[in-house]
Amino acid sequence: MYNSSKISIAITCAIALLFSAAALAGPKTSYGLGVTPTKEEIALWDIDVRPDGQGLPIGKGSAIEGEAMYEAKCASCHGSFGEGEGRWPPLAGGENTLKDDRPEKTVGSYWPYASTLWDYINRAMPFPAPKTLTVHEVYAITAYVLYLNDLIEDDYVLTQDNLAQVKMPNQDNFYADDRPDTHNTRCMNNCKKPKDIVIVQSLRGITPEQEEEQEQGAAKVEEKAKPTLSKNALAGEAPYKQSCFVCHGSGIADAPRTGDKNAWASRLKQGTPMLIKHAIEGYIGDAGVMPPKGGNMNLTDEQVTAAVHYMLEQN
């Protein structure tokens, strides 16, 4: 494609020159490029939602319905009460902390609009499998997160018509950019008294070492192992990268790291079928929560099985 388009660029450049000269003179240029999408095609892509509710699809859901969905697809990272597991972001709490020395910005304490929550869950969550939730799930889970923040009752049914009416506590506390807000001047001499200067040294011990860490990432491990992969495991590479790497690549959420022999040794004793069962159905172990299919219910059992083989062959 790129060869052909390079040539066409060279040609159109010359033509475009003629065109723009003409454009100066009068009517709008039209390059005649692109196609007109149908209404259906636009609707398929047009997923955004605004504070006034524009863009919401017809649907509904309550926190009561959302609890189990949230528990299965969100709680492993965001915590059962929205408190945030490990380093993952919390989704609730932090009321009245915005003026504190350490403010806690959450959906309840900071977000100005409920529509943003619907829109974001729909476009970006669950993190390992974005855009896989049904409209009903998005309504129900949104309701559940609002409920966790004490913003609606658990039996309140959120719909396309009432979402915009959920008033967020912090809505009125945002204002437009009013910078520049500093007014330094270009002083050249005697700008301050040398004796007033106090030097604050940097915190010790938090600058990353510059050499090893980055190179030892899971990506490296994978590359090394690749040539010896079985056919089964090869098929698992894509689903692994899409839905398992997020936890098993880094060991986040206390997931056993792919390629970390020690972490897997005792697990292997259960036998591969049990590991596969755990990966497909999910389970809670001593280390933490392994969500069913890593939270991506769109994966087939075969894909998850292949992903497990892929993981095991990295050891």
């Binding site: 605004r50 915005l98 003026k99 910005k105 943003t116 506390n173 437009a176 950019d177």
Partner: peptide, 23 residues
């Protein structure tokens, strides 16, 4: 649209507890 990356993130929380947006 006030999406997540211009509300939850990429807004500037000021000392009075209010926040600048679209900075």
């Amino acid at each position: 649209w006030h999406h997540r990356e211009e509300t939850s993130k990429y807004t500037d929380l000021m000392p009075d507890g209010r926040a600048r947006r679209f900075t």
